[in-house]
Structures are given as structure tokens and as C-alpha cells.
Nucleic acid binder design. Structure first.
Lengths: 177, 177
DNA sequence: TGAAATATGTCAATATGGCTGACGTAAAAG
DNA sequence: CTTTTACGTCAGCCATATTGACATATTTCA
């Protein structure tokens, strides 16, 4: 019935002799894929109740994290175009999860803030995802959080690491606490 | 000029006193987001040269990993509908990266295999992503791979873990080697 | 002051990757 | 011989992203 489910053949390198290329790390590749999928799945389910998608989540999250964020900064963080952002942001503004206030020193800017409603949703989403991390870390030996942070940080493009670190901690990373 | 870039305010919990809810793990949440983005970015860039997207990548990857995979099994792994798969799979078949052979014992089945061209592309993609893992692990203390695997596995829904483990290792997980 | 750069908004067209529902067909299983 | 299974396909819809072009207000600078 399942001759289709054979033993995994990747232990044998197929094809002609290519010297000894390091074997691909299929385990990490696939685990990263599935772990991330479950990670975002938590939030996806909650967001559905509000008629929002992942795009809304990302906007809401970073606005909540950095109140007073400018449009241009948000675009830079998300790495999308303003046209893409606009539809999503508009919906968050229209439904009252995010509000925009003109900049004080520069009135061209629209500084973004979460409303109390938006803050609550953003927190609910973060709590959901934090609970997954808590569960996962709880299954691991004591002190697994530092190494996990180090691992994830090391996976990020070195060139982007400072930017990310200052976004995450408000300053360059100083090592596991 | 940048009163918009204030110190991060999340250290103070906003709103009324909600007792002491555990603080959200913003660091892990955001690092996971950025790490995954860079991780898939590597492959995305290579895939563009072939006119493929992430959907093609996933199909090619799992077919390469489990030669002789049935359509239904692939759908189960990817968690998408057959209609979604079909367009992508068709393109991989038409362009000769994947081939389908009727099942031997059950001729309704279409068993999927990568062609030599497909195997090469799949390996190139896996190598790219493996190189990122190698670089990352190289920046960490010796023996960081085991904990990384354990962390990612722990992040996966417990109910799905056996399925994932048997997909990744061909058997239930036995702990870091 | 007047021109240029900046921050943002908007219209239009397009691509990709998902979805649901309905229907068809060949082969296997009872 | 009927039902179930494995798969394909048509049609339409949605979400998220893209590029390009153009508009508008505001700030900056020569």
C-alpha cells in the first residue's frame, strides 16, 4: 500500500561524484519551516475573528511596539511598498485599531499609534505567540532561552543585525542575559 | 528630527492594572520573524531566476526528499488544497523539474519524482539554506546544533510532532545526536 | 523667495498563492 | 456491480504583494 513511503534516500548523495559537498541540513530546514508555520498559525486564527490577515498583524505589531512610528520607517521594517501598506493600514485606521497623528516638528509625517483597542489586540496576539515560546522553552533544559535568541539572531543577515537588534532591544545586542 | 524614534515603551505595561501578566517575549517573536524572512529570502532570490516562487520550492523540496511521494501525501504535508497544488505542480511537470509515474500496485496514483534537473535545483536550494545554518552555527558555541533542533521541534504543535519527525528523520525523534 | 527634495497618498494594472464548490474520470475495493 | 478512492479541472473569489505614474503638502536649501 505504501511503497511510496520509502526510507529517506538523502543519506545517499544522488548523481555523479561531486567530491564531498557537505550534506544539506534537511532537518533544520524542515523544522524551521514547520515551526514557523505553527508559530504564525496561532495568530492567524485569532486575526480571522477580526477580519484581519498577517499583513495587518505585522503593521499592528510594530506600531504597537514603536508608538509614533513614521510611515517610512514602517515601510523599511516591513520591506514592502507603500501601496501594499496603504490598503492594510487604511483598514486598521478605519476600524480604529491604529491612529495617525501629524508630526509635531514635521507636519508631513503621519505618526502611527495603536488605540487602546489596537493595543489590546496587539497584546493578545503577542501573548498567544509568547505562550508558544513558553511552552517550547518549558520542554527544554533550563536556560534554553538565551541560546534560542542567539541562534535566531545568528540566522539573520549580518548586515541587518544591528537594525534588527535596535528594533528589538532599542540597542545593539549584548549577548544572552 | 526623530522624536518618532523614542525608547521602546513596552517595558511599561500600558493600561489599567492587570495584575502581573507575564511580559510578552517580543524579542523571540521578532527575531523569529526576521530570521525566517532571511532564511526564505535566500531561496526566493534563486527561484526567481527560474520563474518559480515559494510554492514551487516547497513542492520541489518535499518531492526531492521523498521520491515516489503521492499527490495526497504531498497535499497533507503542505496543508493546501489540490487546486492550489495543481497549478504549481503542473508548472514543475511541464518544465521538467518533476515527473509523475503511475503507481505500480495502484495505477490511480501519480508518484512524484524529481528529474535530474529538479534534483540539482532542489539541492542548490537546500545548500543555500544549509549555508545559512552553517554560518549561524559557526558563530555560536560548539554543539549549538542540537539545541537549535530541539528548540525548533519544541515550537511545533505537539500533536504534529510525530508526523514532522518521521518526515524529517524517517522515524520519531530520539533527541540530539 | 523660489526651486528642489521629502513624506505621503492614490489610481491602475499585474502576479502569486491561497481558497471553495462543483463536476468528471479511471481504477480499486467491497 | 456499486461504491469509494485518487486525482484532474473549470470557474470564481480573496489576500498580499508588485511596478509605474501622478498628486499634494511641507520642509529645506541655494
Amino acid at each position: 500500500m505504501d511503497q511510496a513511503l520509502q526510507a529517506h534516500p538523502q543519506s545517499r548523495m544522488p548523481g555523479p561524484p561531486e567530491a564531498d559537498a557537505p550534506a544539506p541540513m534537511f532537518d533544520l530546514i524542515e523544522l524551521f519551516f514547520f515551526a514557523y508555520r505553527d508559530f504564525v498559525g496561532d495568530a492567524d486564527r485569532l486575526l480571522e475573528d477580526f477580519g484581519f490577515g498577517r499583513a495587518h498583524h505585522r503593521v499592528l505589531h510594530f506600531v504597537n511596539r514603536q508608538p509614533g512610528l513614521m510611515i517610512a520607517e514602517l515601510l523599511d521594517i516591513l520591506g514592502i511598498t507603500k501601496q501594499s501598506l496603504n490598503r492594510v493600514l487604511k483598514e486598521l485606521l478605519d476600524t480604529g485599531y491604529v491612529e495617525a497623528r501629524p508630526g509635531v516638528t514635521d507636519r508631513r509625517q503621519r505618526l502611527l499609534f495603536t488605540t487602546s483597542k489596537g493595543r489590546r489586540l496587539a497584546m493578545d496576539l503577542s501573548d498567544l505567540q509568547s505562550r508558544r515560546f513558553e511552552r517550547a522553552l518549558g520542554e527544554l533544559p533550563q536556560g534554553a532561552k538565551g541560546p534560542a535568541i542567539d541562534f535566531l539572531l545568528a540566522m539573520i543577515d549580518p548586515a541587518q543585525r544591528d537594525k534588527v537588534a535596535s528594533l528589538v532591544w532599542g540597542q545593539p545586542y549584548e549577548g544572552a542575559k
